[in-house]
Amino acid sequence: MIEVRGLHKRFGAHTALRAVDLDVARGEVVVVIGPSGSGKSTLCRCLNRLESPDAGTVRIDGAELPAEGRALARLRADVGMVFQSFNLFHHKTILQNLTLAPMRVRGLSREEAERDARALLDRVGIGAQADKLPAQLSGGQQQRAAIARALAMRPKAMLFDEPTSALDPEMVGEVLDVMTGLAEDGMTMVVVTHEMGFARQVADRVVFMADGEIVESGTPSEFFASPTSDRARDFLGKVLSH
Protein backbone atom coordinates (compact mmCIF):
# COMPACT_ATOMS: atom_id res chain seq x y z
CA MET A 1 0.00 0.00 0.00
CA ILE A 2 2.79 2.41 0.95
CA GLU A 3 6.21 1.92 -0.60
CA VAL A 4 9.13 4.14 0.37
CA ARG A 5 12.50 3.88 -1.36
CA GLY A 6 15.74 5.70 -0.61
CA LEU A 7 14.12 8.69 1.10
CA HIS A 8 16.51 11.55 1.91
CA LYS A 9 15.57 14.82 3.57
CA ARG A 10 17.84 17.62 4.74
CA PHE A 11 16.97 20.79 6.66
CA GLY A 12 19.94 23.05 5.99
CA ALA A 13 22.98 21.29 7.38
CA HIS A 14 20.90 18.80 9.34
CA THR A 15 20.02 15.51 7.67
CA ALA A 16 16.59 14.45 8.90
CA LEU A 17 16.23 11.27 6.85
CA ARG A 18 18.87 9.18 5.15
CA ALA A 19 18.14 6.31 2.76
CA VAL A 20 14.87 5.29 4.39
CA ASP A 21 13.07 2.29 2.88
CA LEU A 22 9.70 1.24 4.25
CA ASP A 23 6.87 -0.97 3.04
CA VAL A 24 3.44 -0.97 4.60
CA ALA A 25 1.08 -3.69 3.43
CA ARG A 26 -2.68 -3.22 3.06
CA GLY A 27 -4.29 -3.48 6.48
CA GLU A 28 -0.97 -3.38 8.28
CA VAL A 29 -0.42 -1.19 11.35
CA VAL A 30 3.15 0.11 11.53
CA VAL A 31 4.17 2.02 14.63
CA VAL A 32 7.25 4.22 14.32
CA ILE A 33 9.11 4.97 17.54
CA GLY A 34 12.42 6.54 18.41
CA PRO A 35 13.99 9.45 20.27
CA SER A 36 13.13 13.10 19.47
CA GLY A 37 14.84 14.33 16.35
CA SER A 38 15.18 10.84 14.93
CA GLY A 39 13.16 11.73 11.81
CA LYS A 40 9.90 9.92 12.69
CA SER A 41 7.67 12.92 12.07
CA THR A 42 9.59 13.94 8.96
CA LEU A 43 9.10 10.45 7.55
CA CYS A 44 5.38 10.62 8.33
CA ARG A 45 5.08 14.05 6.67
CA CYS A 46 6.97 12.86 3.60
CA LEU A 47 4.41 10.08 3.10
CA ASN A 48 1.84 12.62 1.85
CA ARG A 49 4.44 15.15 0.77
CA LEU A 50 3.67 17.85 3.34
CA GLU A 51 7.46 17.70 3.44
CA SER A 52 9.08 17.23 0.03
CA PRO A 53 12.02 14.82 0.19
CA ASP A 54 15.35 15.70 -1.42
CA ALA A 55 15.69 12.23 -2.94
CA GLY A 56 13.78 8.98 -3.04
CA THR A 57 10.25 7.97 -3.94
CA VAL A 58 6.97 7.36 -2.14
CA ARG A 59 4.32 5.20 -3.79
CA ILE A 60 0.77 5.03 -2.49
CA ASP A 61 -1.20 2.05 -3.79
CA GLY A 62 1.21 1.76 -6.73
CA ALA A 63 1.14 5.43 -7.79
CA GLU A 64 4.17 7.60 -7.21
CA LEU A 65 3.49 10.86 -5.36
CA PRO A 66 3.85 13.70 -7.88
CA ALA A 67 5.77 16.83 -6.89
CA GLU A 68 2.79 19.19 -6.78
CA GLY A 69 -0.49 20.28 -8.29
CA ARG A 70 -3.85 18.58 -8.68
CA ALA A 71 -2.45 15.10 -9.07
CA LEU A 72 -0.77 15.41 -5.67
CA ALA A 73 -3.99 16.75 -4.12
CA ARG A 74 -5.88 13.70 -5.51
CA LEU A 75 -3.42 11.27 -3.95
CA ARG A 76 -3.44 13.13 -0.64
CA ALA A 77 -7.22 12.79 -0.57
CA ASP A 78 -6.71 9.02 -0.28
CA VAL A 79 -4.34 9.28 2.69
CA GLY A 80 -5.77 10.61 5.93
CA MET A 81 -3.53 12.49 8.32
CA VAL A 82 -3.87 13.23 12.01
CA PHE A 83 -1.61 15.86 13.56
CA GLN A 84 -0.17 16.36 17.01
CA SER A 85 -1.90 19.75 17.31
CA PHE A 86 -5.25 18.54 15.84
CA ASN A 87 -5.38 21.39 13.29
CA LEU A 88 -9.16 21.51 13.17
CA PHE A 89 -10.35 24.53 11.19
CA HIS A 90 -10.98 27.09 13.94
CA HIS A 91 -13.60 29.09 12.05
CA LYS A 92 -15.84 26.11 11.23
CA THR A 93 -18.05 23.90 13.35
CA ILE A 94 -17.05 20.29 13.92
CA LEU A 95 -19.63 19.17 11.35
CA GLN A 96 -18.32 21.69 8.79
CA ASN A 97 -14.78 20.49 9.48
CA LEU A 98 -15.90 17.01 8.43
CA THR A 99 -17.94 18.00 5.39
CA LEU A 100 -15.60 20.55 3.79
CA ALA A 101 -13.26 18.20 1.94
CA PRO A 102 -15.85 15.54 0.98
CA MET A 103 -17.96 18.29 -0.63
CA ARG A 104 -15.11 20.23 -2.26
CA VAL A 105 -12.82 17.37 -3.22
CA ARG A 106 -15.11 14.36 -3.61
CA GLY A 107 -18.07 16.36 -4.88
CA LEU A 108 -20.55 14.95 -2.37
CA SER A 109 -23.81 16.82 -1.82
CA ARG A 110 -24.27 18.54 1.52
CA GLU A 111 -26.89 15.94 2.58
CA GLU A 112 -24.59 12.99 1.83
CA ALA A 113 -21.58 14.67 3.44
CA GLU A 114 -23.51 15.57 6.60
CA ARG A 115 -25.01 12.09 6.90
CA ASP A 116 -21.53 10.52 6.65
CA ALA A 117 -20.10 13.11 9.03
CA ARG A 118 -22.70 12.51 11.72
CA ALA A 119 -22.21 8.76 11.45
CA LEU A 120 -18.44 9.20 11.86
CA LEU A 121 -18.85 11.56 14.81
CA ASP A 122 -21.08 8.98 16.49
CA ARG A 123 -18.48 6.32 15.79
CA VAL A 124 -15.76 8.32 17.57
CA GLY A 125 -18.18 9.15 20.39
CA ILE A 126 -18.71 12.89 19.91
CA GLY A 127 -21.97 12.98 17.95
CA ALA A 128 -23.37 15.52 20.40
CA GLN A 129 -20.59 18.01 19.62
CA ALA A 130 -21.33 18.35 15.87
CA ASP A 131 -22.45 21.96 15.96
CA LYS A 132 -19.79 23.30 18.32
CA LEU A 133 -16.61 25.12 17.35
CA PRO A 134 -13.32 23.28 17.88
CA ALA A 135 -12.27 25.60 20.71
CA GLN A 136 -15.35 24.51 22.70
CA LEU A 137 -14.14 20.88 22.80
CA SER A 138 -11.57 19.21 25.03
CA GLY A 139 -8.27 18.13 23.50
CA GLY A 140 -9.32 14.51 23.36
CA GLN A 141 -12.60 15.40 21.68
CA GLN A 142 -10.78 17.63 19.19
CA GLN A 143 -8.39 14.86 18.26
CA ARG A 144 -11.25 12.40 17.82
CA ALA A 145 -12.95 14.97 15.59
CA ALA A 146 -9.73 15.30 13.61
CA ILE A 147 -9.62 11.52 13.13
CA ALA A 148 -13.26 11.58 11.99
CA ARG A 149 -12.44 14.42 9.58
CA ALA A 150 -9.68 12.33 7.99
CA LEU A 151 -11.99 9.28 7.82
CA ALA A 152 -14.70 11.33 6.09
CA MET A 153 -12.57 11.18 2.93
CA ARG A 154 -12.73 7.35 3.07
CA PRO A 155 -8.93 7.12 2.91
CA LYS A 156 -7.00 4.01 1.89
CA ALA A 157 -4.46 4.63 4.63
CA MET A 158 -4.09 6.82 7.71
CA LEU A 159 -1.00 8.63 9.01
CA PHE A 160 -0.80 9.62 12.67
CA ASP A 161 1.91 12.11 13.64
CA GLU A 162 2.20 11.88 17.44
CA PRO A 163 -1.59 12.07 17.87
CA THR A 164 -1.56 11.95 21.68
CA SER A 165 1.53 14.03 22.47
CA ALA A 166 -0.39 17.28 22.98
CA LEU A 167 -3.11 15.73 25.14
CA ASP A 168 -3.63 15.76 28.87
CA PRO A 169 -2.92 12.28 30.22
CA GLU A 170 -6.55 11.50 31.01
CA MET A 171 -7.52 12.07 27.38
CA VAL A 172 -4.89 9.86 25.78
CA GLY A 173 -6.93 6.70 26.30
CA GLU A 174 -10.04 7.87 24.43
CA VAL A 175 -7.96 8.71 21.34
CA LEU A 176 -6.00 5.46 21.46
CA ASP A 177 -9.30 3.57 21.76
CA VAL A 178 -10.52 5.11 18.52
CA MET A 179 -7.23 4.24 16.82
CA THR A 180 -7.37 0.67 18.13
CA GLY A 181 -10.89 0.36 16.74
CA LEU A 182 -9.67 1.55 13.34
CA ALA A 183 -6.84 -0.96 13.36
CA GLU A 184 -9.29 -3.74 14.19
CA ASP A 185 -11.41 -2.69 11.22
CA GLY A 186 -8.42 -3.33 8.98
CA MET A 187 -7.28 0.23 8.25
CA THR A 188 -3.73 0.60 6.94
CA MET A 189 -1.99 2.80 9.48
CA VAL A 190 1.39 4.43 10.06
CA VAL A 191 1.55 5.75 13.62
CA VAL A 192 4.37 7.88 15.00
CA THR A 193 4.00 7.77 18.77
CA HIS A 194 5.60 7.58 22.17
CA GLU A 195 2.81 5.33 23.46
CA MET A 196 4.66 2.05 23.97
CA GLY A 197 1.53 0.32 25.24
CA PHE A 198 -0.26 1.08 21.97
CA ALA A 199 2.75 -0.15 19.98
CA ARG A 200 2.84 -3.37 21.95
CA GLN A 201 -0.85 -4.15 21.68
CA VAL A 202 -1.95 -2.81 18.31
CA ALA A 203 1.09 -2.72 16.01
CA ASP A 204 1.69 -5.45 13.46
CA ARG A 205 5.22 -4.13 13.17
CA VAL A 206 7.34 -1.70 15.15
CA VAL A 207 9.90 0.44 13.33
CA PHE A 208 12.64 1.99 15.44
CA MET A 209 14.32 5.12 14.07
CA ALA A 210 17.38 7.03 15.25
CA ASP A 211 19.40 9.78 13.56
CA GLY A 212 17.27 9.72 10.41
CA GLU A 213 17.63 6.01 9.79
CA ILE A 214 15.51 2.95 10.40
CA VAL A 215 17.67 1.08 12.85
CA GLU A 216 15.51 -1.98 13.23
CA SER A 217 12.00 -3.23 12.76
CA GLY A 218 10.08 -6.27 13.85
CA THR A 219 6.94 -7.53 15.51
CA PRO A 220 6.21 -5.84 18.83
CA SER A 221 6.88 -9.01 20.80
CA GLU A 222 10.31 -9.49 19.19
CA PHE A 223 11.23 -5.83 19.39
CA PHE A 224 10.22 -5.18 22.99
CA ALA A 225 11.53 -8.52 24.29
CA SER A 226 14.87 -8.59 22.52
CA PRO A 227 15.91 -5.49 20.56
CA THR A 228 18.96 -6.30 18.44
CA SER A 229 20.63 -2.86 18.24
CA ASP A 230 22.34 -1.04 21.10
CA ARG A 231 20.45 2.16 20.32
CA ALA A 232 17.06 0.47 20.57
CA ARG A 233 18.09 -1.24 23.83
CA ASP A 234 19.26 2.10 25.19
CA PHE A 235 16.01 3.84 24.10
CA LEU A 236 13.76 1.13 25.54
CA GLY A 237 15.77 1.12 28.74
CA LYS A 238 14.99 4.83 29.16
CA VAL A 239 11.30 4.83 28.20
CA LEU A 240 10.28 1.59 29.88
CA SER A 241 12.13 2.03 33.19
CA HIS A 242 9.33 4.12 34.72
Binding site: N48, L50, G69, R70, A73, R74, R76, A77, D78, V79, G80, M81, F83, S85, N87, L88, F89, H90, H91, L100, A101, R104, V105, A146, R149, A150, M153
Partner: peptide
Protein backbone atom coordinates in the same frame (compact mmCIF):
# COMPACT_ATOMS: atom_id res chain seq x y z
CA UNK B 1 -1.03 28.71 12.13
CA UNK B 2 0.69 26.74 9.36
CA UNK B 3 -1.07 23.57 10.52
CA UNK B 4 -4.37 24.94 9.16
CA UNK B 5 -3.11 25.00 5.59
CA UNK B 6 -1.34 21.68 6.07
CA UNK B 7 -4.50 20.02 7.35
CA UNK B 8 -6.43 21.40 4.39
CA UNK B 9 -3.88 20.14 1.87
CA UNK B 10 -3.61 16.78 3.64
CA UNK B 11 -7.37 16.38 3.01
CA UNK B 12 -6.79 16.77 -0.73
CA UNK B 13 -7.67 20.44 -1.16
CA UNK B 14 -5.52 22.22 -3.74
CA UNK B 15 -3.37 25.15 -2.65
CA UNK B 16 -5.95 27.60 -4.01
CA UNK B 17 -8.84 25.83 -2.26
CA UNK B 18 -7.00 25.70 1.05
CA UNK B 19 -6.20 29.40 0.78
CA UNK B 20 -9.75 30.37 -0.18
CA UNK B 21 -11.69 28.07 2.15
CA UNK B 22 -9.46 27.73 5.20
CA UNK B 23 -6.63 30.26 5.43
CA UNK B 24 -8.11 33.49 4.01
CA UNK B 25 -11.37 33.40 6.02
CA UNK B 26 -9.29 33.16 9.20
Amino acid sequence: PSGQGEAARALGLTFTQSLRLVVLPQ
